[in-house]
């Protein structure tokens, strides 16, 4: 082996490059297999239930609190200029453009990403994935494609739900302090929002959903070293997906700004 390749730093770089190549292969395999039959419709629906329906209580609470807290935090600044009447417009833009998809993605990273990482990791180390493989089933299709599709479908729906709950939480705060009626509040909310804002929410949520699913599956599918490996898979699924969600948020905001201009 060349001397340079034996340096610790070079080994780290080598490992990182190998990991990146593996991730690339994993993502490409997803896109290759997603269009090929058999389509695991039942499993996709079951996963949508797990990802979407079972996340509703947590998403409801978080969305509601986000709406209330954001409104309460924004009020003093607007009050200084006597502009509290702008609160509904400000809140709607903030929630629909940024907060709803981001909060949903972060909650899903923690709840769904770790669950997928741990579930697949545990299946991997107990040879359940091998058992599927030898019984003539394509485990990638059954386990990975179904879960990634489920997160890609469910996170946008959950994001709209978070937006609705957040706007309602904000309404309660606005109604209490500014005495604004339900109708006036929502008239101002919808007046401020453009189609591009809604498109931005959908785009972000789809990208975030795909990221959470694929990262969780990748970590779980490649876990090793027994129960320690399962824990690491769940942990990395959360850390990596949260990190990537923030990077994607920055990139998508730039794209949307360019479209707006």
């Amino acid at each position: 082996m060349p001397l340079l390749a034996q340096l610790p730093m070079m080994k780290k770089i080598q490992r990182t490059l190998i990991e990146l190549a593996n991730i690339h292969r994993f993502v490409m395999r997803f896109f290759r297999e997603v269009f090929m039959p058999p389509y695991e419709i039942k499993e996709i629906i079951r996963q949508c239930y797990v990802v979407g329906w079972k996340s509703l209580p947590l998403i409801s609470l978080t969305g509601f609190i986000t709406g209330v807290v954001f409104t309460n935090q924004s009020r003093p600044s607007l009050a200084e200029f006597g502009a509290t009447s702008w609160l509904p417009a400000l809140i709607s833009i903030a929630i629909i453009r940024a907060l709803a998809p981001l909060v949903t993605a972060l909650i899903a990273s923690g709840k769904v990403g770790s669950q997928i990482g741990a579930e697949l990791g545990s299946m991997k180390v107990t040879e359940q994935i091998d058992a599927m493989e030898v019984s003539g089933t394509n485990p990638f299709k059954f386990l990975v494609v179904s879960r990634v599709l489920a997160t890609t479908i469910s996170i946008p729906i959950l994001s709209f739900y978070t937006a609705a709950v957040g706007l309602f939480g904000a309404f309660l705060s606005v109604n209490q302090h500014e005495d604004t009626s339900f109708r006036v509040y929502f008239d101002q909310v919808f007046e401020a929002v453009t189609y591009l804002d809604v498109f931005s929410l959908v785009l972000k949520a789809v990208v975030f959903g795909f990221t959470i699913g694929i990262v969780g599956c990748y970590q779980g599918y490649h876990s090793s070293k027994g129960t320690e490996g399962v824990g690491r898979a769940a942990n990395w699924a959360v850390v990596m997906s949260m990190f990537l969600v923030f990077i994607e948020e920055i990139l998508i905001v730039q794209i949307i700004q360019a479209m707006r201009a």
Binding site: T126, E127, Q128, D130, E133, V134, S135, G136, N138
Partner: peptide, 22 residues
């Protein structure tokens, strides 16, 4: 892949830890 999957249908594999789906 497809041919291997077909061949595997003729092979039963009993795993050390059973590998039942939990």
């Amino acid at each position: 892949d497809k041919a291997l999957r077909q061949l595997r249908l003729k092979i039963g594999f009993s795993f050390q830890n059973s590998a039942l789906y939990d």
